[in-house]
Structures are given as structure tokens and as C-alpha cells.
Computed example of a mutant assay.
Amino acid sequence: MVECCFRMEESLHYTYKINRKRNIIAALEVRVVKQGSFEALMDFCVSKGTSLSQYKKRSCIKSEEALKILDSRVIGKYFSPKSPL
């Protein structure tokens, strides 16, 4: 998984790589969550008024409550140990 993080960082835009090398942004982090985590997130969103038929998995989550749901289900955290440049 650590190698996967590094390979993903290598594939990102040059601007990301420069900012990463300068420590402007942190290393890419990949988190593995328990099975059913995204269903729990969907249930939370529906409970807050999202229509079940219109629900789509999020690419960006701003809700602290939603982040807590995912954080509570993390079973692994992985970082790239080196800068991609």
C-alpha cells in the first residue's frame, strides 16, 4: 500500500509534485475502511435529508459528522515515504 501511495503521487500533476517537495502540502494518504462504511455514510446523508434516489458517493466531504463516521471505520492508514520528485 505504501508503494501504491508513491505510485499515485508520481501520477499527479507537476504542480502537486513541486508543492509536495517543498513541504507546502503533506504526503498523499490512503485510508482503508471497513466494509459497509460507505453505506453508513449514505444512511447518514439520507437521515439529514438527502433523497435516497439522488444519493451519490461523495468525492469531497466537508461535514464533520460524516468524517467522524468514516474515521471511526478506518482499518489502515498509508503514506508515501518519499517525495515523488
Score class of each variant (00 low, 15 high):
M1K: 07
M1E: 10
V2F: 10
V2S: 14
V2Y: 13
E3G: 01
C4H: 04
C5I: 02
C5K: 05
R7L: 03
E10F: 01
S11T: 02
S11Q: 05
L12N: 02
H13Q: 06
H13R: 12
Y14R: 05
Y16C: 00
R22C: 02
R22L: 11
I24S: 07
A26Y: 10
A26I: 01
A27C: 08
L28M: 05
E29I: 05
V30F: 03
V32E: 08
V32L: 13
V33E: 00
V33L: 09
K34L: 11
K34I: 02
K34C: 04
Q35M: 09
Q35L: 10
S37N: 11
E39P: 03
L41M: 12
M42H: 05
F44G: 05
F44M: 15
V46H: 05
S47Q: 14
K48C: 02
G49L: 09
T50M: 08
K56F: 09
K56H: 13
K57P: 00
K57Q: 02
I61W: 11
K62D: 13
A66E: 13
L67N: 15
K68V: 02
I69P: 00
S72N: 11
V74N: 07
I75P: 00
I75N: 10
G76P: 06
Y78E: 09
F79E: 11
S83F: 01
S83V: 03
L85S: 05
